[in-house]
Design a binder for these strands. Sequence first.
DNA 1: GGTTCATACTTAGCAATACTAGGTATCGAG
DNA 2: CTCGATACCTAGTATTGCTAAGTATGAACC
Lengths: 107, 107
Amino acid sequence: MNRQRLKGHLPLLLLTLLESTPAHGYAVLEALRRRSGGRFDLPEGTVYPALHRLEASGLLHSRWEVIAGRRRRVYATSRKGQDALTREREAWADFSGAVAAVLGGTP
Amino acid sequence: MNRQRLKGHLPLLLLTLLESTPAHGYAVLEALRRRSGGRFDLPEGTVYPALHRLEASGLLHSRWEVIAGRRRRVYATSRKGQDALTREREAWADFSGAVAAVLGGTP
DNA sequence: GGTTCATACTTAGCAATACTAGGTATCGAG
DNA sequence: CTCGATACCTAGTATTGCTAAGTATGAACC
């Protein structure tokens, strides 16, 4: 897995991971790697800016925490983010279903 | 469906449609729309350049045909394109499987 | 007590590519 | 003869994942 196949799908993944449990960026990055079985092994330069964009558009909000001398920015989904996640899930089902239909090949 | 969710996935779709039956760009565009149930209703400015890129990288080759006074550029997959299609299919299975794993949420 | 590694965050710039918006041209239907 | 569908083209834009570089802390090691 690599290249930018996930272009446009990252918000779905990040919002999903943050839906029920707030977490800081590095933890999100690790959760993504773990839950995808190592297939989404994204660099920090991908995840952090994506989180910033989501916060800038009001889908996430964050607060600073200091734990054992280390500062962390902990993100949680906003109400707007919950709604966006619902739409993202539908969009993913739609998209992957359409791809499957084309691959399935019903002329 | 909209935005650029299919970024990086277009080659898979185009190579799939051209795998067994050569076709011209406009026909590919219509086949995509039809087989996806209208969900991939892509503008010409998306499809034509994508076909050009695939030909430039040797995955497709084309020839001009003239039918009823209209010129058409008919595309077919090359050997290299067949191999690429195989890899694209695996990459799609990998990618969509990874997304499903994250959405499924096995912590 | 200095080095190394994992943790944790940041950002300027790059690259790839779907899309916009305009263009050309043919043919059949009204 | 206009209009719509067919059929192609491309310059430019916008988005966004990624590269590469930086800062800083704590724990483990010798």
